[in-house]
């Protein structure tokens, strides 16, 4: 029982971690909280539903389609909601936040019109397959989700740490102007960051669809806000913090459903950010910023 819950928690947590990585990448490079990330993620999930349910397509095609669509959305987001603000002088630092809130509201209601307000089931062909190890039941879906999450996190870390583009991204995150002086194409790096973050959101969307077997237009908001809570928990712009924070939140939510009141499951994330911001504003893994 305990181990089964632990597995549930880790599965949920690894999805949260991927959502949070999308937030943390954009924040790390641009210093912007992308409120539209949750909705892009939700669109990824819907593309998954459309491909697997309406067109009876295989799962890998759903992943490819979701990545493609969310990547385009990421580009559009950067081009129309973020870039116009960057070139302007004297714009309040709150402007990009408000602008992405606008994008999120727009996308949520667009999906209402496109897909309807109801609940869409997400049928993975192997949803019912499970293994018995001793007295523990493990579903194949959980293993798939976990493996994909780990692969994604590992390749992101490798890409950030070892490749030239990843180094350019880190340099831009460190200091935009200096990176630009040193010959990094800052504009391209920023666009690429938003696109990659959005595509990761799309993948996470399909994983959530598989895990909960349901996709709704509102899920963007609820999971998006949790992703936000996680990056504050782990430290803004910190990749390792996003991963660990996601796991912590996933486990905490699973265990409150088992041992506490399931109604308050959604409040944990916010209670956690309010507390963490008061006690340790830089997050668990963040470094102290001198004011």
């Amino acid at each position: 029982m305990l181990i089964e819950q632990l597995i549930n928690g880790i599965t949920l947590g690894s999805i949260y971690a991927i959502v949070a990585l999308g937030f943390t990448l954009v924040f790390g490079v641009l210093g912007i909280i992308n409120m539209a990330h949750g909705e892009i993620f939700m669109f990824g999930a819907f593309i998954g539903v459309v491909v697997t349910a309406s067109f009876q397509g295989p799962l890998w095609l759903a992943f490819l389609a979701a990545i493609a669509v969310t990547a385009v959305m990421g580009y559009l987001l950067e081009r129309f909601a973020l870039r116009p603000l960057r070139s302007k002088q004297g714009v309040s630092h709150l402007a990009p936040l408000i602008s992405t809130i606008g994008v999120s509201i727009f996308l949520e209601n667009l999906s209402h019109h496109l897909f309807g307000a109801g609940n869409h089931p997400f049928r993975a062909s192997f949803a019912e397959i499970s293994f018995q190890i001793g007295s523990i039941t493990v579903y194949l879906v959980q293993i798939v989700i976990f493996v994909i999450s780990i692969l994604l996190m590992y390749s992101l870390s490798f890409w950030l740490g070892k490749t030239k583009a990843g180094k350019a991204l880190r340099a831009t995150a460190e200091n935009l102007e200096t990176a630009s002086l040193l010959g990094v194409d800052v504009k391209r790096t920023i666009t690429m960051t938003v696109i990659i973050a959005s595509a990761m959101g799309g993948i996470a969307g399909i994983l959530v669809g598989m895990a909960f077997n349901s996709v709704t237009p509102q899920m963007g908001l609820s999971i998006g806000l949790k992703g936000l809570a996680i990056i504050i928990l782990g430290g803004m712009g910190n990749v390792k913090g996003a991963m660990v924070g996601g796991l912590i939140l996933g486990l905490a939510e699973t265990f409150i459903v088992v041992y506490g009141d399931s109604g308050y499951k959604d409040a944990i994330a916010f209670a956690a950010i309010i507390i963490i911001l008061l006690i340790r504003p830089q997050g668990l893994f963040g470094q102290k910023i001198s004011a």
Binding site: L94, L97, G263, A269, I273, I274, L277
Partner: peptide, 28 residues
């Protein structure tokens, strides 16, 4: 009093989180 130690986007998120906590309490 406690949140005003936070600036800009942090304050926006905490207040957003506060609103959600209030809503969850009303529902539950």
């Amino acid at each position: 009093i406690p949140t005003l130690r936070l600036k800009g986007v942090y304050l926006a998120i905490v207040t957003l989180g506060f609103g959600e906590v209030i809503r969850v309490i009303f529902v539950n």
